Computed example of a mutant assay.
Amino acid sequence: MRVINAGFKSKLIDLGRRGLQHMGYCQSGPADQNSYKLANLLLRNAPDAVAIEIMFGGLELKIEQDMLLTLTGADCDLYIDDKHYTINQIVSVHAGQYVRVSAPRAGLYSYLALSHEVVSPLHLNSVCAVERERLGGSENNGVGLKAMQCIELANRHLEPEQLSYVSILNESPNQKALDGIMTPISRCVVVRFVPGYQYSEFTHTQVALFKGQKHEVTHHISSMGVKLKGLPIDIGKVTMYSEGISKGAIQVTPNGQAIIMLHERQTIGGYPKIGSVISADIPILAQCQAGTHVQFVECDVDTAREMLLLRHDKFQRCFGLS
Score class of each variant (00 low, 15 high):
L124V: 09
R156N: 15
D48I: 11
T239D: 13
F319M: 06
S35R: 04
L308H: 11
E243K: 10
P283M: 13
H293L: 12
M1E: 03
V190Q: 14
E133I: 11
S276G: 05
K11F: 11
R18H: 14
A290F: 03
D81G: 10
T86G: 14
A51D: 09
S110M: 10
V93M: 07
E159Y: 13
D82K: 10
P272S: 06
H215V: 09
G19D: 07
M1S: 03
K11D: 11
M261L: 15
S276E: 08
Q65V: 10
N40Q: 08
N45F: 10
Y271F: 14
A46L: 12
Y197D: 15
I63Y: 04
G24N: 04
A49D: 15
Q295D: 07
T292Y: 05
L163P: 00
S242M: 09
I282Y: 02
L321M: 15
G269A: 12
Q295A: 06
D281A: 05
A304I: 03
P160Q: 12
R134H: 10
Y79L: 11
L15V: 15
H220A: 14
L163V: 06
G58K: 00
Q289N: 10
S92M: 14
M307V: 13
V252L: 05
H312W: 04
D77I: 09
V207A: 01
K314W: 07
D32F: 10
Y241R: 12
A258F: 00
I185K: 02
I54A: 02
S279V: 13
H94D: 05
V166K: 01
I221W: 06
S322Y: 13
L178T: 02
V130I: 14
L209Q: 06
N88V: 04
Y36K: 04
Q27I: 12
Q89I: 02
M23I: 08
C299N: 03
E131W: 07
P173R: 12
K62D: 10
N170F: 00
E131H: 09
C26G: 09
Q266L: 13
V194I: 14
I151M: 13
L43P: 05
K211I: 00
E159V: 08
A280M: 09
Y98S: 14
G16W: 02
S35L: 04
V190P: 04
T203C: 01
L262V: 07
E264R: 11
A6Q: 09
N255G: 05
P283Y: 00
G137L: 03
L321F: 12
V91F: 06
L228K: 03
R192P: 03
R100Q: 13
I54M: 04
L15D: 06
S167D: 14
I181E: 03
G230Q: 02
